[in-house]
Amino acid sequence: MLPITNFILLSAVIFTIGAVGVFFKRNIITILLCIELMLNAANLAFVAFASYFGDTTGQLFVFIVMTVAAAEAAVGLGLVIAIFRNRETLNVDEANILKL
């Protein structure tokens, strides 16, 4: 197999791209997509180390991360719908008060 550095570097690059997206984008759906990107980068690092140590535990953690990502997407998109119904916008800067 290739040196593990390749996979970890790819993971770091994708994580940084996801973080940049969270920093720069103001559309809440795109921010959620960028969070998925960061979770995927973490998954790649998990799988790389699990594979290089020959240990299944890391792969199991990826499975758990995917579960959490699915739950996060469901609740996050429910919130997006709730915000859009009340505010008529998806800009996160507009959603700055707690009052409905």
């Binding site: 197999m1 594979s51 240990d55 299944t56």
Partner: peptide, 23 residues
Amino acid sequence: LDTLAPSPTAAAAGTTERIAEVM
């Protein structure tokens, strides 16, 4: 990280069977 040698059991660790067993 480059000194980390690939594990010989990597292929066995990623099968459905093994993951189900651990899970």
